[in-house]
Write a protein that binds this DNA or RNA. Structure first.
Lengths: 347, 347
DNA sequence: ATGAAAGCGCTAACAG
DNA sequence: CTGTTAGCGCTTTCAT
């Protein structure tokens, strides 16, 4: 930085001002400084900046790399962060590293706030964070107190999906849940409530899932082994729905003619043209903006108790749903293209 | 940190030593310090540490969030980093942010080395990095000079796939390429070479792809519109193969009975039980280790010209390949379950 | 094992 | 607009 200053023949402070887009330097000096920096390949040292300005403008985001929803969300987080003048620091939650370590490392970066995705952190690890820094949770209500939450009510979302299917004429609608965490519970209860409301309480059919493609596959295998399929399957997120859809296809069934399938999230996965899943949209762009606004407020010193900010879900109808066929599928002798050969993933 | 020192009744330096696992403090003091830190919720400030020890132990990783291969790779990078005592800083390349900005931001963190995935950066942005800091490129040879490279030769890998199919009895083998970057060119040339060597030079059939699921879908649509399908399709990576496979299924074809499909990478995607793709393995764990070792050496001051480190590909045979059927498929009147209705992704 | 002193690269607060 | 002074939280060196 001194080099740059010397090169232009101005003071260090001036250079600092230019890089922080602060008022002071004339447009002319600004230009000269920027050009000199470019030539010298100068780039301010983020560590030194953070150290000096006591208040960091950084937000740590802990996310799971494999989730299409979180991928979409992170993508939308960037423009939203820019709007409020914040910088994101990504912390990947990967199976090869304990969450505790990840949290510790991120804490070391002294971000002014954390954004976490619903229950991708255990309660213990979560508490570790909330103790130091304000937290905005996306998607699910953890038991943690004092965190802000940005959420799309899963029960409402699933109700939209079920209602849509019932309107199409479906009566046999199976639900594939998520792992037993708070967010999944709400989605499940939406299914149950909607089925009851539609007078289909006796048709309730719940299958366990785990929010992954493989969970969808597993559920369909179970369904196939019964020898009788529902006319529609409501999955609790997009990867599950994708697993369901493709496994059905492999069994020689058609979507939506033989079975309708719905997902949840409206992630890029559901938009793949050959899946084209009817799904429940979570508006990630809006949620990202709200999350960062909340983070910015907390960083600005706002105290108060944790708020819950809700963004309405929206049904996105694509081609994976249609009215059920009136007659039972002719051949329930389904194909067996190797589906089910493997009992679990390999290493 | 002073607080911790005071609490235990030792000097600041001692605390510092404890946190850096340096010799000096007795096991007893160590314990006391750690416990006090825990109670006070103390965590060393990474920025201050970096500032002081001139040499950073950080490695920036620029990766594309959507790629299953890069996801796997990043996962394996963590344990590998730990082995050599390095810390990773993730930089996500997302469509909502220019690569230039991303690079600049990462440069600001003053990592001692960068790990980049083949051609996920333009030449310009790449040069920007190499100017400041040693770079290890994964997967493809860019034109950049001075970078180390860890690569699985794509031509060799594709040859393995083609040879496997020919051995099974296939003669009509279509290849779906990648975007016109260096890595993709090698994979394509492997296909061409192998076909020629097998005496199938006149059967060469190249289709463009883009390394995405949607590219696979597009290619299959093109194939279907010809009214004649090959008996096998070699895709240049796993997402493409997944797009191919599911689009074929939707068209009422069976895998592998009607068409065999192979991918490339052996990413988690190819291992999904309902896809179970025959694919070419890139050993991400080994590559990650080599990449970090190279990074560590450069950070240690090793000069020399850029090295190319090669990891052999390996064919992984799963259930998406089998001998072709002797007769032509009976009905080439394929189903049309909406496949092809949509001409492109929506927003 | 400790304490004192210096300084990493930057920002902030002030008087010019 | 410039220069000076101070200091963020830590590590390092050196003498104790």
């Amino acid at each position: 930085m001194d080099d740059v200053a010397r090169r232009v023949g101005v003071s260090r402070q001036l250079v600092s001002l230019v890089f922080r887009d602060q008022a002071g330097p004339s447009a002319d000096t600004r230009d000269k400084v920027l050009r000199a920096a470019e030539e010298l390949g100068y780039q301010p040292d983020a560590a030194a900046q953070m150290l000096r300005r006591r208040q960091s403008a950084h937000v740590s985001v802990l996310y799971t790399t494999g989730s299409p929803f979180e991928q979409d969300f992170v993508r939308d987080l960037y423009p939203a962060a820019e709007e409020v003048g914040l910088v994101l620091v990504l912390g990947a939650l990967v199976p090869t590293r304990g969450e505790q370590e990840t949290v510790e490392e991120m804490l070391g970066y002294r971000a002014g706030a954390f954004i976490l995705f619903g229950n991708n952190l255990s309660d213990g690890a979560l508490r570790r964070v909330t103790r130091h820094v304000p937290v905005v949770e996306i998607g699910k209500a953890s038991a943690a107190s004092g965190t802000d939450q940005v959420d799309t009510p899963g029960d409402r979302g699933i109700e939209l999906a079920v209602d849509h299917l019932v309107e199409l004429g479906h009566r046999e609608i199976t639900f594939i849940g998520g792992p037993d965490l708070r967010g999944a519970v709400r989605r499940r209860s939406g299914y149950v409530r909607s089925m009851k409301r539609q007078g289909l309480g006796d048709k309730i059919d719940l299958l366990p899932g785990d929010y992954t493609e493989e969970g969808g596959w597993r559920a369909v295998r179970q369904l196939l082994s019964r020898g009788h399929l529902p006319t529609a399957i409501v999955a609790s997120n997009d990867p599950t729905a994708a697993g369901v859809a493709v496994t059905l296809l492999r069994a020689g069934l058609r979507i939506p003619e033989d079975v309708s399938v719905t997902g949840f999230d409206d992630s890029w996965l559901s938009r793949l043209p050959y899946l084209d899943l009817t799904t429940v949209r979570q508006d990630t762009a809006k949620m990202a903006r709200l999350a960062l606004r909340a983070a910015a407020e907390r960083m600005g010193g706002s105290q108060g108790p944790g708020r819950v900010i809700t963004v309405a879900p929206e049904l996105v109808v694509r081609s994976s749903t249609s009215p059920p066929r009136v007659s039972e599928p002719k051949r329930l002798q389904v194909r067996n293209d190797g589906v089910g050969r493997r009992s679990t993933t390999d290493a």
